[in-house]
Nucleic acid binder design. Structure first.
Lengths: 366, 366
DNA sequence: CCCCCAACTGTAAGCGCTTACCGGTAAGCG
DNA sequence: CGCTTACCGGTAAGCGCTTACAGTTGGGGG
């Protein structure tokens, strides 16, 4: 028997009210736990709601009380097709997003995801569209210009991830500096390596800049000889790393005792290139990464690297945003601690030597 | 110099109108390309909009024209921590979601993602919350009961992924049957294998049921001897697959000539287990998968499998939903073609033999 | 048994935006 | 030069929900 009342398609609070024999205000109050409706009233409303299968309209709610309970997240998608090479970075972004999602759910928020391709033109438009549908925005690295971010921030709260703090927006990032310093210290002090190279990532990345600077500073502290610059310019990818090694070797240069890579992907490429040339890691050359992607521990030898708490990064991004949304204030620059993960590619022997397990903290999370 | 007008925080269409010296109707028309505003008017509005950095409120828009331009997607998240084993499945869901996202953007829609943990209690509540904020819902496999889906479908359009068509909801899935039949045909006919086993996935999965049925039917067609049932019960995971092989061997059973696995993960586990026992693939036992995950081609030997067009699956899910939202009608059960990918684990030699490259089509996508 | 007060419930005013409808203006024609 | 015809732009009515405020009900004390 088809329900009698539902002549009109969209079910509204009025339908519930009339079926329950109360006013719309009462329905609203029952649904939101406001006021103290009489048991009888509550019951009738609840019955009507379930019988009708009523779901309040989010837009109307949002319009009425000025809160959408939605945060927008914008990120780059590896264009269209998925090459194997992307798997990791894909995973990376997704882990962060998952962190955001989990944190959001704790507050009853949902996450509006919008990926843009590397070639997409109207990123600003896309971002604006998302901004209109959300209470706040989380932007992954390098989505729009600093000026664009500042402009947007005038309209909705904005949190950037792993970027440089921008005027008006909040930023959340990992403590690259401490991580890199701990890593270099481990190589220079614990292992006593005197010559180090930093195989960089994309130069326009704030992360990379921070890592480069920390590398140089710490190496200088310990008086280690370093190699950096154009000859050691990678791009965060495995092939980029391999290419650098190949050209170094082809030009007959002598490799440094340890190669510090901008990220794990790069380290992976480097280790492959080295293996192809028959150079042993870590016996002849030590190699380290940054990020601690899942495969890092399965390489031969297992990769010494710096773990970034990606999920926490996402969670913190949401928490900061939420704080801004609900209280109006929030930290402009939050830094998450990273952890040095010592495995074997640095020269440490076998089973995770609990050597300089320097947990470099900077600020607490939760 | 701080903007003079903005005494009130939230910028509205009224602010734009007064700054441009026109009415709110004109602003709206310019912004939405309705009517034919005079060039002069358009220009003044646009200037005011950019100067103010105005972004129209999505909730108000949605309320006014009955369209949120948002689709909700609900899926299970591998609980909290990420074990390596999950990487693939994670990727899997994400690939589908990406497909949804891409298709959605073509229509100006955004995607509201909501993951739920395996242990989460109030899934129904969560889903309802998302439903209220979206124009339609896409539910991954096994989110809520069939009854729950039907109830929901009374409120918003719902598309289920790879499930069984449910009353009221639409469903989108891959053509498991054709894929499995092509695969079995290849093994039984092209290779002439007479004994086959089907190492199943979780029994409650509609996908698995379809695959099992097709396996049995096609094997029967060719008069091949088959093994199925409790002894060959896996769970879609690598360890599940390995376990089955181990127990078969431990009990001294003779393995069939070919093992058809419910998915690639399982095949991966099987190949590992076989390798540990020194059994050669495909010389002694052939192994096949299902899904064609990225690593499938990198196994030794490369895995023969059936490719499911995951991204297209997501895109089609959105397209079906969109059709329902905008026109009110849509296919209740859409089936995507899969493709048999012949590599070496089935016994085919070296470089992708272009043998029975049976592209089993069922219905067209776009 | 009636009155008064405390609760609870209903009425109505918006939230910001779209759009039907109507008045006003400018261009076209006699 | 006056009137008709098109168009443009403005006014106002909602979209579905929350909530301040007013109104109503029920119960306890006098």
């Amino acid at each position: 028997m088809p329900d009698p009342k539902r002549l009109k398609g969209p079910l509204t609070i009025y339908d519930v009210a009339s079926r329950a024999g109360v006013s719309i205000a009462s329905v609203s109050r029952v649904l939101n736990g406001q006021g103290s409706p009489r048991a009888n009233t509550r019951e009738r409303v609840m019955r009507a709601v379930t019988e009708l299968g009523f779901v309040p309209d989010g837009a109307a709610r949002a319009l009425s009380n000025g809160l959408k309970e939605v945060v927008g997240v914008v990120f780059r998608r590896g264009d269209e097709t998925l090459f194997e090479d992307e798997d990791e970075s894909l995973l990376f972004i997704d882990v962060i997003n998952r962190g955001i999602d989990v944190a959001a759910q704790r507050r009853g928020f949902d996450v509006l995801m919008s990926s843009v391709g590397y070639t997409d033109q109207n990123v600003a438009t896309r971002v604006a569209a998302v901004a209109g549908k959300a209470d706040g925005l989380i932007l992954h690295d390098r989505m729009i210009s600093a000026a664009g971010i500042t402009r947007l921030a005038g309209t909705v709260p904005v949190v950037t991830l792993a970027g440089t703090p921008t005027r008006g927006a909040m930023n959340v990032r990992c403590d690259n500096e401490s991580g890199m310093r701990a890593l270099v210290r481990h190589l220079a002090v614990d292992h006593g390596y005197r010559s180090l190279a930093y195989l960089s990532g994309r130069t326009d990345s704030p992360d990379n800049k921070a890592r480069t600077k920390a590398f140089e500073a710490e190496a200088a502290t310990h008086g280690a000889e370093i190699q950096t610059g154009p000859d050691w310019q990678g791009n965060y990818s495995a092939v980029g790393g391999a290419k650098v090694i190949d050209s170094q070797l082809d030009e007959g240069r002598k490799l440094p005792r340890a190669i510090v890579c901008a990220n794990d992907q790069t380290a992976l490429g480097v280790m492959h290139a080295l293996a192809r040339r028959g150079i042993r890691v870590p016996a002849e050359v030590a190699v380290t990464g940054f990020d601690d992607v899942p495969v890092a521990r399965h390489l031969h030898p297992p990769l010494t690297t710096v773990r970034q708490p990606m999920q926490e990064l996402g969670a913190m991004a949401f928490d900061v945003l939420y704080s801004k949304i609900s209280t109006g204030k929030a930290d402009l620059d939050s830094v998450l601690p990273v952890q040095l993960i010592v495995r074997e590619s640095c020269g440490c022997a076998g089973r995770t030597a609990p050597t300089t397990q320097a947990a470099t903290a900077a600020q607490d999370g939760r």
